[in-house]
Every structure is written in structure tokens, then in C-alpha cells.
């Protein structure tokens, strides 16, 4: 096999090649004037802006503001979702009381509540955090509830036959058994929270990623818009990686992970 065919073969299976080619085409288009800057900034320009915004602290400060909004919203939403799922999952009365409400809530697109939340909470931090919290309840609730209900009854029966109390059954069997489902729900909640953040920050924000994007739009700074989009993507990736890391620690007993 000649070096040339070997190179061609390894390039043929390289997944990074096509994104890189796209960037090269964009760069060439910008340099030659085919793509005007007000339509799309050149990749090199975006990188330079990223560097400048990071160095000046503009990006990091605004990112920190957005990050705190997500953390606060998620903390409230995920906790609420877990509590509701436990209530609905562990008792029949709880299911009757909670589940219909949650199913109704599911049919309302969270973002459609934005006007109502502005009327209730004004235009400060509260409606932003409330929107994120509200949106992140459901994925956690649905998955954990399903996980609890999907527990292998034979395991529960085994624990019961050993004389474990109901509380001990919940602690030793139901909760660990529902943990994988909870982590799936958490992953959904994280990505939903970033999505809602984007919209929530359009509400009269004076700081945060959404504020940066809005400002950049007014000045037609496509490079800043692209930098912010990149940061959103990185946020999503980081959230996913976080849950994966938790999973590989918490679910170490699973055969797919055990066998590795």
C-alpha cells in the first residue's frame, strides 16, 4: 500500500475532516469578500473576538452571570422534580394527586409562560430563574417516576422476604434502582435549562450571554454572536460530560461499565 492510499484511507474515516473543511470554506469566502462580515464573521475573526472578550473579562463575567442563573434554576427545578416523583412514585395517593397535574404541565410549552412570569415576577432575575426551574422539573419528574415504577418487583419481594421495612426497601432497593433513570432525566433537564436560558435572557437583561447576543445584534457584530453560540454549545457539552462523569461513578455496578 502506497503512502498516498494509506493517507486517503485514514482521511476517509476521519470525522473531524468535514467540519474543518467547512471552516476553511467559510474562511476563504470571508477573505475573498463572497461572505460579507455583517452576514457571517470569518472563523479567524471569531477566534480573535473570543480571545479579546476573554482577556477583557467581558465574556467570563457574563458567562458567570448566566451560569448562576442556570445553577439556581436547576437547583429549584430538579429538587422539585425529585420530590414530586418520589411522592407520585412511592404512594398511590401521591400518584393520584401529583401525576395529573404534571401531565397538564407537560402540555404547556414552558416558554409560552414567559409573558405571565414577567407579569408575576417583573423583569429582574426572578422570572429568568423561575423559567429555568419550571422547565427543568418535568424531565427529572418523568424519568424518576418511571424509574421508581419500573423497579423489578422480584428484587423488592426478595428484600421483603428478608424482613426489610418499607423505609429500608425504599433506601436499599427503590432509590438505587431508580438512579439510572434519574440521571437520564437530569441530563434532559440540563439541556432544557440551557435552552430556556437563551430565551429567558432576552428579558431586559443587563448581563449574561443573552445580553451579549442582544447587544451584538444591535451592532450587527456577527463575530460576538458566534462566540456566544460557541459558549452555549460548550455549556451543553460540559453539562452532558458532568452527568456522564456522575454516571460512571454511581453506576459502576452495571455490566457495561464493570466489564471495561
Amino acid at each position: 500500500m502506497s503512502p498516498f492510499t494509506r493517507l486517503a484511507r485514514s482521511l476517509g474515516t476521519a470525522r473531524w475532516l468535514s467540519p474543518l473543511l467547512l471552516l476553511a470554506v467559510l474562511e476563504a469566502g470571508s477573505r475573498s469578500g463572497l461572505i460579507p462580515e455583517r452576514t457571517l464573521a470569518a472563523p479567524s475573526q471569531v477566534l480573535a473576538t473570543l480571545w479579546a472578550m476573554t482577556a477583557s473579562g467581558e465574556l467570563t463575567d457574563n458567562l458567570a452571570v448566566s451560569f448562576l442563573r442556570i445553577i439556581a434554576g436547576l437547583a429549584i427545578g430538579v429538587t422539585t422534580g425529585i420530590v414530586l416523583a418520589l411522592v407520585a412514585g412511592l404512594s398511590r395517593q401521591g400518584e393520584v394527586a401529583v401525576d395529573p397535574l404534571m401531565q397538564i404541565k407537560r402540555t404547556i410549552p414552558t416558554l409560552a409562560l414567559t409573558p405571565l412570569f414577567i407579569v408575576w415576577f417583573g423583569i429582574g432575575e426572578t422570572p429568568k430563574i423561575a423559567l429555568i426551574a419550571f422547565a427543568s422539573i418535568f424531565p427529572v419528574y418523568l424519568n424518576l417516576y418511571g424509574g421508581i415504577r419500573g423497579i423489578d418487583v422480584r428484587l423488592l419481594e426478595g428484600a421483603r422476604s428478608l424482613g426489610l421495612s418499607r423505609a429500608a426497601q425504599v433506601w436499599h432497593v427503590i432509590l438505587p434502582g431508580a438512579l439510572p433513570a434519574l440521571l437520564v432525566g437530569l441530563r434532559y433537564s440540563l439541556s432544557v435549562s440551557v435552552l430556556v436560558l437563551v430565551v429567558a435572557e432576552q428579558i431586559n437583561a443587563t448581563a449574561g450571554l443573552g445580553y451579549l447576543i442582544n447587544n451584538a445584534r444591535d451592532f450587527m457584530r456577527t463575530d460576538i454572536i458566534l462566540v456566544c453560540l460557541m459558549v452555549y454549545a460548550v455549556l451543553g457539552l460540559a453539562a452532558d460530560g458532568l452527568v456522564r462523569a456522575v454516571e460512571s461513578r454511581a453506576l459502576v455496578w452495571r455490566p457495561s461499565i464493570v466489564s471495561q
Binding site: 428484587l155 426489610l164 436499599h172 434502582g177
Partner: peptide, 25 residues
């Protein structure tokens, strides 16, 4: 009052190490 069952399937809790399964409860 003191009974114990061994089922056809062992019904061990997969998320607990072997000794913790034995010590369960």
C-alpha cells in the same frame, strides 16, 4: 418470625457488592 427465602433467581441487588447483599438489613 425468622424466615429467609432463596428464589430460583438469586435476586441480589446489583448495585450492592456481594458482602453488602449478604449483610442487607
Amino acid at each position: 418470625g425468622s424466615r429467609a427465602v432463596v428464589f430460583q433467581d438469586a435476586r441480589l441487588l446489583p448495585w450492592k457488592k456481594v458482602w453488602r447483599n449478604v449483610a442487607l438489613g
